[in-house]
Design a protein around this nucleic acid. Structure first.
Lengths: 113, 113
DNA sequence: CAAATATACCTAAGAAACTTATGTATTAAA
DNA sequence: TTTAATACATAAGTTTCTTAGGTATATTTG
């Protein structure tokens, strides 16, 4: 697992991006999905995920739909139009940030007169 | 400028990496250097930088050396052995984190049966 | 030469986004 | 039947920033 600080600020982007690919997902599913595709390198804690989902919903990026599975209620999230635009923006921003950071952390080939 | 949250958790890595390349630097110099190589995309605020430098020093990653420039005292920071190892570790961790994040945020080419 | 800007250090209050811990409840596996 | 997995949620505490100040010297510019 990575330095916990690194994940900060990327959680919303992760959520929005996953939902832009999968139509609708519920919280627990998101944690499992991320765990799988990152081979356990990124584990989303529920204490971080749920408040983040609620916030995105409150801000109009997500809408919810409750589905009864037996006696349990599962809460599916999906993107609004606003959420869809935001997903794209945030992913682009993140990719660009990574590029910029690499300018700092990877050795430069440039001239050293 | 990027979402301020993104920078979080990367500041220590930036500091350590720069010092692993430049032998010694002072705080203000670090802010200017980062501003230049990122073309203004990343601006380190002094309110974040100085406490971070102090912390790294307190933890034994950096040592300081005061140099008088006219009537002003400039405080140069350089890596300890511990700081040097840490620089490498943290950079590797960050690069690896970026790779893992890209698995999430970039479209996969993988089979969709 | 006076005023503004740049250089150079610093700290403190507050905000944001986490972690850790806890709670509830159903369902499946051992 | 007990444990683990599924599935939701909140709350206190921590960390790391941002924002906003403060001090002082040096340089540029009108």
């Amino acid at each position: 697992m990575y330095n916990k600080e690194l994940i900060k600020g990327t959680l919303q982007t992760i959520i929005l991006k996953l939902l832009s690919e999968k139509e609708k997902m519920y919280g627990y599913e998101i944690t499992q999905h991320v765990r799988e595709i990152t081979e356990g390198k990124i584990i989303l804690t529920e204490g971080a995920l749920y408040p983040s989902l609620h916030k995105l919903e409150a801000e109009g990026f997500l809408i919810t739909e409750k589905v009864k599975i037996g006696k349990r209620v599962r809460k599916y999230y999906s993107l609004t139009t606003k959420g869809s635009s935001s997903a794209e923006l945030k992913v682009n921003e993140l990719v660009d940030f990574f590029k910029t950071m690499k300018q700092i952390i990877t050795p430069k080939l440039s001239a050293k007169s």
